[in-house]
Nucleic acid binder design. Structure first.
Lengths: 247, 247
DNA sequence: CGGATTCTTGAGCATATTCAATTGTGGTGG
DNA sequence: CCACCACAATTGAATATGCTCAAGAATCCG
């Protein structure tokens, strides 16, 4: 059974092939004694609170989505979470039907927030990691908000593809970039504030214009990264954020 | 000169009139020795970095907007900042033309981030304040993202009005809620991912349907809060977030 | 009071949505 | 191995919602 689950997700090679060290390695000894390790499968939901009290989650591997559904509207994917990202239960407003959903097989650390906060007061590395993780996520959300609010359909899709290509892409034959699409069309549409039908149409247009190729339903190859890059107003910001994450 | 500047902004009475204690009072002695106090006027821009190094800003009074402009698109207001909110330079991605703009007269504390981070390691109250401030903001952004991504025009406008009414509203004669509109139509439109014309039209419709009244360009009265509340899918979440902020 | 903004409003238009039909995929069991 | 089913994705035609552009009204500020 090789389908669905991406065997590379645990080791996660860097963008365009550069190997990436695990940024959580230094924290492992500090955190693991207090953290529960959760293994998730595609589609699995993770409860946002541990018996009523606030929890913190640290993504070890895989991809998750943080979702919110306001009454009477369809779901909104508030953020796509990658390894190194941190979520607190309180990041999701109450009465908003929040959910943390695994998009691929992966691993999570879960701690009570009170415990993690306590650890942060003792261990400066933990405190600093938390601050930086949250700060990175704020910057990404700023891009996301700008994309949802100001971009047209094609720009939104291009932005999403570039985001993924930079995160999990590897060079493919012919100068392209290949990467997994851990999210379903519906997930992506809910992330971008688009209709799934419209999204599908837009991706088809990208495919027929030669920018994109699908080897598989869950895998894409960007044949012409340059062309794609010019389609998204956020390209420069995304590249910048991504290179920071490494250095 | 009473115009534009809201004389209440310094003391800031709570929602619907309950007096609200200054949540920053306990931190005053810890922070003020290291913070520069900036007084802003409506329309003023605040530089996001202090001579090249990362800065942190804590809103004392007034209202600010955090803006981002991707090349080739119009501006997006990423967040509206109220007293108690914290912003780091790194919350804005590079290459995104970030700006921190004052929407009303107000006061800011500015520190180098390195200094604030250092203070947080010594003083647990500071650390805890930072974590909670960021967490609150994450939750608000989740609502904002859901609003931009999923709501229609009327729902977006209703959501915005409720947000402001809960924040800065005071009961007015006849059971309504009166509050300042510190943002221009264009600002609000950029916040909601709408066209300014469309926004104006929508507010006119609310006005002619009796929900809303304008005494002044920068001041609004919600005559029927219930009716407005039913127009926004995020009402319950907003109320919840707002009541948390007090308790 | 006058000039410059900002806001409002209308008419026509464009983009994305809706709804429905069709095709494609992955998984299951014969 | 194939047939089948359920689900996801694609595609088309009609529609709706919000946008553009332009003109006029209101308000701000010197």
């Amino acid at each position: 059974m090789t389908s669905g689950v991406n065997p590379r997700s645990a080791t996660r090679p860097g963008p365009l092939g550069e190997p990436k060290p695990d940024p959580l390695a230094p924290l492992q000894t500090a955190l693991t004694p207090h953290a529960a390790t959760l293994r998730t499968r595609r589609g699995q939901n993770v409860a946002l609170a541990v018996d009523g009290s606030e929890a913190a989650f640290i993504v070890r591997s895989g991809v998750l989505t943080l979702n919110v559904t306001m009454p009477g509207t369809s779901r909104q994917v508030v953020a796509i979470l990658f390894p190194g990202d941190v979520v607190r239960s309180s990041f999701v407003p109450r009465e908003a039907d929040g959910a943390l959903t695994s998009a691929s097989a992966g691993e999570l650390w879960r701690l009570r927030w009170s415990v993690l906060a306590e650890l942060a007061t003792r261990d400066q590395a933990v405190a600093s990691f938390l601050h930086e993780a949250v700060s990175r996520q704020m910057a990404r959300r700023a891009i996301h908000i700008a994309a949802i609010g100001q971009f047209n359909c094609q720009q939104k899709v291009a932005t999403f593809l570039i985001e993924l290509a930079l995160r999990t892409g590897t060079p493919s034959a012919g100068g392209g970039v290949a990467f997994d699409l851990p999210l379903s069309r519906t997930d992506v549409a809910d992330y971008l504030g688009l209709n799934a039908d419209t999204l599908s149409r837009t991706m088809s247009r990208l495919r027929s214009s030669g920018v994109l190729t699908h080897t598989d339903r869950n895998r894409a190859v960007v044949r012409d990264f340059r062309a794609l890059a010019t389609l998204s107003p956020a390209t420069r910001s995304l590249i910048d954020i991504h290179s920071e994450k490494i250095g």
